[in-house]
């Protein structure tokens, strides 16, 4: 709870970028010292990360409690063509006209921690438009809404875990975490695995964004290798002639517990 000495109301906070950046650097330096002392690398964000002010009262203070997965936790809901139409993966054809902005294709694979493709599973995305504005009533950023872009897509992964979305490159946008706070451009991804314990929501970023170092949400991941896993790669083989530039981003879920338990049962 020591973190709660910081400003509690994110809307009222007057912290400068320099103050936020200094807090981030201090936590990251502590983490580097931990690594030097032989601690295991972190792979996930810290939920207790004070530079992201909204996290102060919204993270558990106790350690997560270990659970051995029971039957329901070894399975995941099933989604398929009944749930998602093939056209839902193209965010540029949902209205009468072409949305404004840089047309891109984002594609990759969903894998589990054993490298197995997660086939036939739901991927959901949502994002801001090319001006950095969400179609959401709480987004008050005075940037234009694009009548031809909602920014929501869905897909069902293929047999090799592959997915592909056609969309518009989102722009950075301001938020109220601190004075002059801007989020790096990103696409939200929602993912399911073969076990519901693999459920995750994350954000994909674009390579070389100058806002990375300043962003407390991205920097809540203390490990540079782990942060890099959220950054897509420009891929010219995905880029198509006179149509769209291409990015590749593969997603790795945690390990399935059902698969190895079944294999172990089979061995006896």
């Amino acid at each position: 709870m020591s973190a709660n000495t910081n400003a509690l109301d994110p809307a009222a906070t007057t912290a400068t970028q320099e103050e936020i950046s200094a807090e981030i650097s201090s936590t990251h330096e502590d983490y580097r010292q931990q690594l030097l002392a032989g601690k295991k690398a972190e792979t996930q964000p810290r939920v207790d990360f004070a530079p992201y002010r909204s996290s102060l009262l919204r993270h558990p203070t106790k350690n997560l409690h270990h659970a051995d997965p029971e039957t329901i936790e070894l399975y995941s809901p099933a989604f398929g063509q009944r749930d998602v139409h093939a056209l839902e993966s193209d965010l540029t054809i949902q209205h009468n006209g072409e949305p404004i902005g840089e047309r891109i294709v984002v594609s990759g694979r969903v894998l589990d921690g054993d490298g197995r493709p997660v086939a036939g599973q739901l991927v959901e995305i949502w994002q801001a438009n090319a001006a950095g504005r969400y179609v959401h009533k709480r987004d008050q950023h005075p940037a234009p809404i694009d009548p031809n872009f909602t920014g929501v897509g869905r897909a069902i992964t293929g047999a090799n875990g592959e997915y592909s979305f056609t969309t518009i490159k989102p722009a950075p946008y301001p938020w109220k975490n601190h004075h002059n706070a801007w989020r790096p451009a990103h696409i939200h991804f929602s993912l399911f695995g073969t076990d519901f314990t693999q459920r995750m929501i994350t954000q994909m970023y674009f390579p070389g964004d100058p806002l990375f170092a300043l962003d407390p949400i991205y920097q809540s991941i203390t490990d540079q290798d782990a942060r890099d896993r959220l950054v897509a790669t420009y891929d010219h083989s995905i880029t198509s002639h006179e149509w769209a530039t291409g990015y590749n981003w593969d997603i790795v879920l945690t390990g399935s517990n059902r698969t190895w338990m079944e294999e172990e049962e089979g061995e006896h």
Binding site: G113, H136, S220
Partner: peptide, 18 residues
């Protein structure tokens, strides 16, 4: 695990239309 899992991130405030 053979591969390192991708980090999660917050759902943020703007999922309501998605």
């Amino acid at each position: 695990l053979k591969l390192t899992p991708t980090p999660g991130q917050t759902i943020g405030p703007f999922y309501g239309y998605a």
